[in-house]
Design a protein around this nucleic acid. Structure first.
Lengths: 353, 353
DNA sequence: TTGTAAGCGTTATCAT
DNA sequence: ATGATAACGCTTACAA
């Protein structure tokens, strides 16, 4: 670093005023304390000298960093980069910077990340890793750290959140399948510790009823986590427990991919034998084989709104908490079709396991 | 924020020593200045009191932040999250934090990002957005900011870099196609301003020769950027200029997906009529239709090595620059097959454009 | 309206 | 080996 930075002191010296005057003139919140003409002059001078305030120094004094932490459970899941872009779009406008932490679905890493970020004096956090009863979120709230949840919410509404209308989204998928003529629809649910897992499952059950379809308890299999492998395992169980399903509503796209695998392993073709729907409409879902019918969520908007809420809460910590529920829409592709015929009950290949 | 943090002063008071002694005892680099037993005592006390050093305050004093910036061109491209994970794995061990900036392929945004990050006093930067003659990289170097390039390098070797052996990677693809019996192989090159674009193209030409195949200049089309749409356009041009190609080596996976689109639009099937290979072996490449034969690069290692190099350079700015070239391997999937037959020259559908 | 001075939490330098 | 002091660059009571 050979280039020395201009500092407040330099600008003040050049203008023949005291540094604090420059500080006041440059800070929008204190500008009114200084005469308009001086303010203008100093601002121009500062720019001309290439003055850039030092966020570290100002952060030390004000205990604010214009930085927020973002916890994502799996940055390799293409839905999160899109949400991140939305977050950064909102933050950038406000001059904030995001520090992203990928927890790789590990609560311990989430904990470490928050500690590390708190040490760096983040002004708030956007959390995409929450479970319904989340000790980490409670911890942040206890610290008085502004937190906004995204995609997944916690119980109790103690924390603002931007989520999908999961139930309505799933209902779209079920209605689509019902309209195609499916009568026996299964669900691969995500774990109920996630709000998404719970709400999508509840939405699935409700939607069956709304479409006049019988609820079949054993036509729901629960994964132990989000992911392709977990989806495949659960799907294999579902096919064993309910071999007559002609369609499967998966709790998300990765799980849907797992269904593709399990169906293939069972000698079943999608959508010929079994239709499959996903959730999130992740990037490249249109490229899968077959292209995945999925519930599209407004990733970018979700990120933008979460950041907006967080900035508002940082601005005014007393602001009321709110939950914003975003509407999804169904994108129909090649993984869903009319049921070919009522499949004969076949001896489950899973028996070999 | 109601919980007050323990500070150096508190630990010192509790121990009955001066804060600077505590500082010395806690900092590995200065620990030798203090008697071993006092050091041990203070360390234990600090931990017991839950002392966490304040990186902001220490950063102000030392002008180091234990933070590095990471510039990625497109975080929605699934190869970058994998590289990021590698980077963070290395950084975390050293107690460093990454601040990620997605430039969305816009040099102006890259510039802004670096300014913003420099203001935050990053200790160095990992740049995945470089072009061969990159003013931004030159700017950083001029500032004395340690920089390591990843995936793409700049000309002149003034900057350490971790890249793939692009030519060797492409040669793998060409050799595979040649072994399948292809004699007329085309290439969709990325723009030559990127080292990857240039080296892969040169590697392609060299590999043709190495396999005893004739170099056909018009069997190379150049995209104006990385991306599916750009790939599709270039592929359409290639099919027009060289309608007899039976295989296409794409400069990366997104471009390969564009080839899928262009082939389909031209009424050609992959791999039946034309085989296609990609580069990077991005996540989900195995899920495409058809599954994409691609050159797999060690994403995670690439990130780890880049971070390692950067940390070394931060530690010792005089360290010699080095370029690490990583070897790739070919993953053969369904997008490549033997050429069916010598395709008859057909009137290009592109004539309609 | 502007200047003065103290202080944010650390660490480097100097003194003991 | 440890203590005292100043300084990093900025903001903000308080004084003028």
């Amino acid at each position: 670093m050979n280039a020395k930075r201009t500092k407040l002191h330099d600008v003040a010296a050049a203008a023949g005023v005291h540094p604090s005057t420059v500080s006041r003139a440059l800070n929008p919140r204190t500008r009114h304390l200084v005469s308009a003409e001086v303010a203008g002059r100093l601002q121009r001078l500062a720019r001309r000298l290439g003055y850039r305030p030092d966020p570290v120094a100002s952060g030390l004094r004000t205990r604010r960093s214009a930085t927020v932490g973002v916890l994502v459970p799996d940055i390799a899941n293409p839905m999160f980069p899109l949400i991140l872009r939305g977050i950064e779009a909102s933050l950038a406008r406000a001059g904030f910077t995001a520090i992203i932490a990928d927890t790789e679905n590990d609560p311990a890493r989430a904990r470490e990340a928050i500690e590390r970020l708190a040490a760096r004096r983040i002004d708030g956090a956007i959390v995409a890793t929450a479970v319904r009863r989340d000790p980490l979120v409670a911890h942040c709230l206890g610290l008085g750290l502004p937190v906004v949840l995204v995609n997944r919410s916690v119980e109790g509404g103690a924390c603002s959140a931007v989520v999908n209308d999961d139930a309505a989204g799933i209902a779209l998928a079920v209605a689509h399948l019902a309209a195609l003529g499916h009568r026996s629809i299964g669900h691969i649910a995500a774990p109920s510790r996630f709000s998404t897992g719970q709400h999508r499952r509840a939405g699935f059950v409700a939607a069956l009823k709304a479409n006049g379809l019988p609820a079949v308890p054993h036509a729901i299999a629960v994964t132990d986590r989000f992911g392709i492998a977990a989806g495949a395992q659960a799907c294999a169980r579902l096919l064993e427990a309910a071999p007559d399903v002609t369609a499967i509503v998966a709790a998300n796209d990765l799980i849907a991919l797992g269904c593709y695998d399990a169906l293939k392993a069972a000698g079943l073709a999608c959508p010929r034998d079994v239709s499959v729907t996903g959730f999130n409409d992740m990037a490249f879902a249109d490229r899968f084989d077959p292209p995945l019918t999925s519930v599209r969520i407004p990733h970018h908007l979700m990120g933008m709104e979460a950041a907006r809420l967080l900035l508002a809460e940082i601005e005014n910590p007393a602001a009321p908490k709110q939950e914003i529920k975003l509407q999804a829409r169904l994108v129909v592709r090649g993984s869903t079709a009319r049921p070919r015929r009522r499949r004969q009950v076949r001896l489950s290949t899973a028996a070999a396991r």
